[in-house]
């Protein structure tokens, strides 16, 4: 099954059109002057191949912002789980976002597994897009080792001069390429080009912060009392942008939405943010994390400390979205650098 294919750029328009005819095709598109978003496309001209990470990561297709999970009728005591999925081809996913989806897969497959998520995931076909260079200065994919794809895709495309080399990783991916009937096996020349580019990447991507990846976990473990959280407390607006754009934040709230007949209704799962003040508030008004610094620390711990204990994996993908979107300039790189300084 594992094989490399080749697609010349002259055929890219045709490639996208054919993909869009098979099932719903979603790709990065331009959203405003400096922003991008994943959205449905039908032609190559809609697609932005050269994009910086989208406002929201592709997780929105796996766990939508608003998702009806139960419908009920009170009088009839009728409850029905709503399982909805849609066949989607997710095109142009950067390697950092592939890692993000892998993290979410771990969480939602963990017991008790989340049927709503898993059913959706089964019908999403992922075509990754390798980054040959940095998107911007916010990314830390070199440190997190996500500048190369470590699985998590059906097909992975690498752009090389006049062509794309496509790595086929799954049977689903192979079948899709079969349906398109337009890509050929990669020749020796293409493979040489691919290797050359990968070698070059080793020089381009370096750890962005002067720390070994394995040292991140102990660094955060010992940072609970660090002063950096106090200065972040002063900076943070508590707007929740950082968690909403994070590819591995998965916290949600479930709201009960009853109809005006006060009989029929539904339960809707909505994204929630640990950065908002009421997140850790309980009845009686007690709040476990009333301070913004404490809430930010929690966010960092959920990326660099706790998931490492539970899943043996960092939940920061290095995509840089949290720093890019922060209006108050709270920067992940700077936070880690300050922690390193404080520890010395």
């Amino acid at each position: 099954m594992e094989q490399y294919l080749i697609l010349f750029k002259n055929d890219f328009d045709d490639f996208v059109e054919r993909l869009a005819k098979i099932q719903k095709l979603v790709a990065p598109v331009k959203r405003g002057s400096k922003s991008f978003a994943f959205d449905e496309v039908t032609a190559a001209e809609d697609v932005s191949l050269n994009y910086i990470p989208t406002i929201l990561p592709p997780k929105k297709y796996f766990m939508p912002q608003n998702e009806t999970i139960v419908e009920y009728e009170k009088k009839q005591n009728k409850w029905e789980a709503i399982l909805y999925s849609e066949a989607i081809t997710l095109f142009g996913v950067h390697t950092c976002d592939l890692a993000g989806i892998q993290c979410l897969n771990l969480v939602f497959s963990d017991r008790p597994n989340d049927v709503h998520y898993i059913i959706r995931k089964k019908r999403i076909l992922i075509i990754g897009l390798e980054c040959n260079d940095y998107c911007d200065e916010y990314a830390t994919c070199g440190l997190m080792d996500n500048h190369n794809a470590n699985g998590g895709y059906d097909l992975l495309m690498t752009e090389l001069e006049d062509r794309f080399v496509i790595h086929v990783n799954t049977v689903d991916g192979e079948e899709l390429m079969g349906k398109l009937a337009m890509v050929k096996p990669a020749d020796a020349e293409s493979m040489t080009m691919l290797n050359k580019m990968r070698n070059k990447k080793r020089e381009v991507f370096q750890p962005e912060i002067d720390i070994e990846r394995k040292e991140l976990k102990p660094l955060f473990e010992e940072s609970f009392q660090a002063e950096v959280w106090d200065s972040i407390h002063e900076k943070c607006l508590s707007c929740g942008n950082c968690t909403n754009v994070c590819p591995t934040c998965y916290c949600y709230d479930v709201e009960d939405e009853i109809d005006l007949d006060f009989n029929k209704g539904k339960m809707v799962r909505k994204w929630d943010s640990c950065q908002s003040r009421p997140f850790a508030m309980i009845s009686g008004g007690e709040n476990f994390r009333p301070e913004r610094g404490g809430r930010q620390r929690h966010r960092y711990m959920r990326k660099f400390n706790y998931p490492f204990e539970k899943y043996n994996r960092y939940f920061c993908t290095g995509c840089g979205r949290c720093s890019r979107t922060c209006m108050a300039k709270i920067n992940l790189k700077e936070t880690i650098e300050t922690l390193i300084e404080e520890k010395k």
Binding site: I55, L237, G240, S276, R277, P278
Partner: peptide, 8 residues
């Protein structure tokens, strides 16, 4: 929570 949450 801020309008930014829904806006994002």
């Amino acid at each position: 929570e801020a309008v930014c949450v829904e806006c994002k």
